[in-house]
Design a protein around this nucleic acid. Structure first.
Lengths: 222, 222
DNA sequence: ATGCTTTTGTTAGAGCTTGTAACTTCAGTA
DNA sequence: TACTGAAGTTACAAGCTCTAACAAAAGCAT
């Protein structure tokens, strides 16, 4: 339907770009984004180094593409998981499980988004848009979920979020839901990022149980 | 007192090593660890590139040194903060504040420890030792703090930690304290790491308030 | 004090990287 | 069929880590 008519050249170009990206992903999965080498990709494709620069202006542009793909994939994962459950708490549990699964499935893909930022690199505006889409999934669930009485610190944060909510312009979502979604997100990230970075490996416990407890607590918390 | 008698050569060597490390730190602060260049450091010191290899066998060895320094500094920061307060909750609040301050003071230093792991690089055993020292500070406080009734998921984690506590061999610390310290740590990290990586910048709220709320909740939570 | 030994620093170079410039070859199009 | 533009090539600059071989300097022992 929405398919733009493309000349054979454009078709070929798109195909090669995809093939490059595919090689890039397997290299990222193997050694991480910082070790990504255009030269190595070219060699694996039977091309000479500079040939790739016809398809991606620079290494950064390729990485940006990967970052956006990762964001899009994560958003889709979260959305799909949310669509499978009706009750808000079950939805949040499902989203949380899906997000951890997504992270463990390809740790370097997760780190590409949430890990150490690349030195000179700045995320494109579109990334922010997608990221707020992910937040929307959480916000939707927390807007429906009932909340208890917030603590003093939580209430202070609620007041602040009441006037600093540019990232969640939907007025129907109360500040408490904003805060709970925010905390939900940071708590998931706290466990997953440490797990993915290997900080639990020598500790001997099962991160899945810690994650389950955190997710449960974050959903239940007022 | 414990000072080993050192020959002039050893003194000079140590001095140069320190100077290299100091330049390395300012380079890390400026552009992050992934952009750290021995060559650039050498030039800034008025030396030729390969000269540095007399002092550090490789780039990885220098980074390892930086990582260990960062760990040691963080442990000292946490310990000092804890020493300033007697009541367990006040102690945890102080430690949390100190740790966030430490992270914001030099984001790349924080990311050197908790960010994306360097590709081929493996943290030395000493790092694990220091890291468990940091956990001890939290464990000590939570062992004293009184806890409420754990949720189902929390209780399950407690049972698990009862038999998987190699990282906290002190039997006097009950599993619930282990769990709460672990969750405390992951929650702090969740907020700080996202803040340091710049994921809050476009959202317009004050991360300090979110952090305060999370710290409060993590201390209060059963 | 003189000579030996070890450490420090040098340059040269291999092998990798990103990225540019200039040239050739090929393919779609008018 | 001739032309135009894209794709791919090699050559190269500038950077990186790290090794090898050599010169200089400094401590140490006789």
């Amino acid at each position: 339907m929405g398919e733009t008519a493309r000349s054979p050249r454009e078709r070929y170009r798109e195909q090669v770009r995809d093939e490059i990206k595919s090689h890039a992903w397997s290299q990222v999965a193997a050694t991480g984004a910082s070790a990504l080498s255009l030269n190595a990709i070219a060699k694996r494709m039977g091309l000479s180094g500079p040939a790739l620069y016809r398809y991606y202006r620079s290494r950064d542009e390729l990485i940006t593409e990967l970052v956006l793909d990762a964001y899009r994939d994560l958003l889709e994962t979260a959305t799909t998981a949310a669509a499978g459950e009706r009750a808000p708490t079950a939805r949040l549990t499902a989203v949380a499980a899906a997000m951890r699964g997504w992270a463990l499935d390809a740790p370097h893909r997760y780190l590409l988004i949430y890990g150490t930022p690349v030195p000179g690199y700045a995320a494109p505006p579109e990334a922010t848009t997608i990221a707020s889409g992910i937040m929307s999934v959480l916000l939707g669930a927390f807007a429906e979920a009932e909340a208890g009485r917030p603590s003093k610190a939580a209430a202070a944060l609620d007041r602040h979020l009441g006037t600093h909510r540019a990232w969640a312009p939907d007025d129907a979502v109360p500040p408490a839901a904003l805060r709970r979604a925010l905390a939900f997100w940071t708590r998931l990230h706290g466990v997953v990022s440490l797990e993915v970075a290997g900080h639990f490996t020598d500790m001997g416990f099962d991160p899945a149980l810690l994650y389950a407890a955190e997710v449960d607590a974050a959903i239940t918390a007022p």
